[in-house]
């Protein structure tokens, strides 16, 4: 859909959520220990490279969203859960990182496996 000046104001105030109102079973539960897949697509992805092969813990389940890796290429919504996953700074950056600091990253079902 082409954005035209007459609909800009309405589009801006309502937005367009990528949530999908479909029941999809989550692959993970809060508290699960996960390993991020070593996944390197040449096409669109929302998995940051620095997470590949890293371990984290699922902190929250945000619900069901369209999967960007397929949706961006008109290959379907492939609806799935997106989670807040906690990683320690040490897991990502090694021993010189603070042992107190952490990161929270939004990770889709298809990017990870249970440890």
């Amino acid at each position: 859909m082409l954005l035209t000046p007459d609909i800009v104001s309405a589009v801006a105030s309502t937005g367009a959520s990528a949530r999908v109102a479909e029941h999809v079973a989550p692959r993970f539960r809060v508290g699960d220990r996960i390993l991020v897949r070593n996944y390197n697509p040449a096409t669109h992805t929302r998995l940051p490279g620095y997470l590949r092969g890293k371990r984290g813990i699922v902190e929250a389940d945000y619900g069901v969203f369209a999967f960007p890796d397929t949706h961006a290429h008109s290959l379907g919504e492939k609806p799935q859960h997106c989670y807040s996953v906690r990683f320690t700074a040490r897991e990502l950056w090694g021993e010189t990182a603070s042992d107190r600091d952490t990161l929270r990253v939004d990770v889709f079902d298809d990017y990870m496996d249970l440890v």
Binding site: R46, F65, V107
Partner: peptide, 10 residues
């Protein structure tokens, strides 16, 4: 320090 990387739709 808790860093939030906005990688998805949140």
């Amino acid at each position: 320090v808790r860093v939030w990387d906005t990688t998805a739709e949140l």
